[in-house]
């Protein structure tokens, strides 16, 4: 017990020291970028759990469409990444397939997929975080919960986005498995909501733009966009997410988010 305490103390002092060290080395822009992101995260804290329906509309250059119907449940975890459960309804042949993800600030996320046709849960490697989610233009890392520790920051200036005066912040992924060199995020100054994100690929060219629209406020606090539109500039493909039936504090528990719960998810 004593040992554990000692280790903990040493560790925390180390971490504190490290943080202050890096804080000292930060430029004013980096500091401001970090603060904006911290504020944004903080403003949304306390939603506890949520569930929502999602319509995912994939379009190719030719204009052909494909629609996926998904239900998503999330659980807020303090001091760690959130947990989420995604249940597929359409296409028909993957109905009942469920995807469980434990997001982590620094270490790799943990992910499992339940395949009803096989009646088995399979673990998915986290090296795929740069890969497309269900063939869409969203990568796994675009959909997993935002954690401040996942990036380093640099404030670039103020700029309007979607008609809202915003902070323009550049974010650099910490994880080397990320598919991006950087993202530029527009966070509005009134409510600290993300309005737009530009994604730059590994060769640092603009890959995608994600626009958020139709923000609604829930429980007088939490803002959620009804529509997220992702355009891939390189392939000409796009994906639109349409959210509905947002519910918060529905009483979901940690036990609803484990390998066993996957099989009975619906």
């Amino acid at each position: 017990m004593l040992n554990k305490k000692l280790v903990f103390a040493t560790l925390s002092s180390l971490i504190l020291g490290f943080t202050s060290l890096t804080a000292n080395a930060m430029t004013a822009e980096e500091q401001k970028g970090l603060e904006i992101s911290l504020e944004s995260k903080k403003k949304d804290e306390g939603w506890a759990d949520s569930s929502a329906d999602m319509l995912m509309i994939l379009k190719n250059k030719q204009g052909q469409e494909s629609i996926r119907e998904i239900k998503m449940k999330s659980l807020e975890i303090m001091n760690d990444g959130d947990k989420s459960l995604t249940i597929f309804n359409k296409p028909r042949d993957v109905k009942g397939t469920a995807f469980l993800s434990f997001s982590h600030p620094v270490e790799a996320d943990e992910q499992w997929l339940f395949l009803p046709a096989l009646k088995r849960v399979k673990r998915i490697s986290s090296r795929n975080k740069s890969g497309p989610f269900m063939g869409s233009e969203f990568a796994f890392e675009d959909l997993s919960s935002f954690e401040v520790e996942k990036y380093t920051y640099k404030y670039l200036g103020d700029e309007a986005a979607n008609g809202e005066m915003s902070f323009k912040v550049e974010q650099y992924p910490v994880d080397e498995n990320s598919g991006y060199t950087r993202r530029i995020v527009w966070i509005d100054q009134s409510e600290y909501r993300v309005q737009k994100i530009e994604f730059y690929d590994r060769k640092n060219t603009l890959l995608k733009t994600l626009t958020f629209s139709d923000y609604k406020q829930y429980l007088d606090k939490h803002w959620r966009a009804d529509v997220q539109h992702m355009v891939n500039h390189q392939s000409g493909k796009s994906t639109e997410l349409k959210w509905s039936n947002y519910q918060f504090k529905t009483g979901l528990k940690d036990s609803d988010f484990n390998r066993n719960s996957l099989k009975r998810a619906r």
């Binding site: 994939l58 469409e65 993957v94 395949l115 795929n128 497309p132 598919g179």
Partner: peptide, 25 residues
Amino acid sequence: AQYLLLYEMSLPYGLDLNNQLNVDK
């Protein structure tokens, strides 16, 4: 469908199946 889904969900950026399958499969 589910094998493909599992496989697709495991592929990293740029190595997906979009060059073999169309958008609605």
